[in-house]
Simulated assay, not measured.
Amino acid sequence: MPRSNTRAPFRRHHLIIYLLFGAITFSTVAAFAWVFNVSMKTNSEFLATSPWSVAKDWSWQNYAVAWTNADIGSFFGNSVLVSVAATLLGVVLSAFAAYPIARIPFRFSGVVLALFLSGLMVPWMVTFIPLYLTLQDLGLLDTRIGLILVYATYNLPFNVFVLVGFLRTLPRELEESAAVDGAGPARAFVQVILPLLTPGLASVTIISFLNNWNEFFYALVLIHSPEKMTIPLGLFQLGQAADYGTNWVTLFAGMIIVAVPVLVLFAFLQNQITKGLTAGALKG
C-alpha cells in the first residue's frame, strides 16, 4: 500500500510564525556578524568611522592582544577549570540524589523532591549574603574551590528535577531483573540504570556547563583577585577599560573568543539536550 502523507497542511498563521522566527534568527546572526566586524577593525578606525562600516583591513592581531595583553587567556582557563569541575560535581551529586527519589520507594520521597524543587524558587539576592559569610568562615572566599562548590549546588535543583523525570520513564522491571541476578540498588544503578540515563545526563551536563560558563553575579561577589577571575568578570573589566581607555576592538575580540566555543558546543550537542529534556518531561 502507498505510504500516507502525514505532513500537516500549510496554513496562513504558519507563515507568520516562520517570518517571526526568521526575523529573530536574522537579528541574532546580524548581531554576531557586527561584533565580529568591529573586532577586525583597528581602534582608530572604529572611533573614526561609522559603527556599521565594514572593516577595511582585517586586524587578526586584535585576538592575540585580547588573549595575552588583556588576560583573556587567563580568564578563559579559569572559566574552563571552574565550569568543568562544578559541572561534573553537580551532575554526579544530582544523579545520586535523583535515583533514590525516583526509583526507591520511601515515605517522604515527595517531600524530598519538593525540597529540591524549592531551590528553583529562591531568588539569588536572598542567597548571596549567607553564601559569602559561609565561604568566609570556611576560608574559601576568593578561591576557585569555593566558586566550584557554589556553582555545583546552584544547579542541583534543576538537575535533580530533570533526572527524576527521566528516571521515572524507565521500566521498574530493570531493577527487578537485576535483583534476581543478585544485584543490590547500588550495583543496579551503576550497571543497569546509568547507561540508560546517558541522554538525561548529557542534557543536564550541557545546560549546567553553559550556566556556569556565563554566570556573573556570584563570581563578582566571591572572587576578588584578578588572577582567579572567570570570563564574565574579564569581559566586565574589558568593558570598563573600553569606557575609560577607548580600547573597544579588544573588548569585541574577547567577546568573540568567549562566544564561539560555547556556540560550537551547543551546536554539536543540541540533539542530546532536546532528547534528554523531552524524555524527562513524559512523566513528572
Rank of each mutant, 00 (worst) to 15 (best):
M1S: 08
R3A: 01
T6M: 13
T6W: 14
R7W: 13
A8W: 03
F10S: 10
I17R: 15
I17D: 14
F21S: 15
I24C: 09
S27C: 14
A30C: 14
F36I: 14
T42V: 08
N43Y: 04
L47S: 15
A48E: 07
T49W: 04
T49I: 04
W52D: 08
S53G: 10
A66P: 14
W67I: 10
S74V: 09
S74N: 04
F75P: 01
F76Y: 12
A85L: 06
A85I: 08
L88M: 12
A95P: 01
P105N: 11
P105R: 12
F106P: 14
F108L: 15
A114K: 05
A114H: 12
F116S: 13
F116N: 15
L117Y: 11
G119F: 05
V122F: 12
M125Y: 08
V126L: 14
I129H: 03
Y132M: 07
L133P: 05
T134S: 09
Q136Y: 14
D137I: 13
T143C: 01
I145V: 12
L147G: 11
V150K: 00
V150L: 02
T153N: 03
Y154A: 06
F161L: 14
F166H: 04
F166V: 00
T169S: 08
L170H: 00
R172V: 03
A183M: 12
G184I: 13
F189V: 03
F189K: 08
V190G: 06
V192I: 10
L194Y: 06
L197C: 07
L197P: 01
P199Q: 05
A202M: 07
I207E: 13
I207V: 10
L210K: 04
N212F: 07
W213Q: 03
E215N: 04
F216N: 10
F217S: 07
L220I: 08
V221M: 10
I223L: 00
H224M: 14
S225L: 08
T230Q: 06
T230L: 06
I231A: 02
L233Y: 07
G234T: 15
F236S: 00
F236Q: 10
Q240W: 12
Q240F: 15
G245V: 10
A253Q: 09
V260W: 10
V264Y: 03
F266G: 13
A267E: 03
Q272H: 04
L282R: 10
K283W: 09
K283T: 06
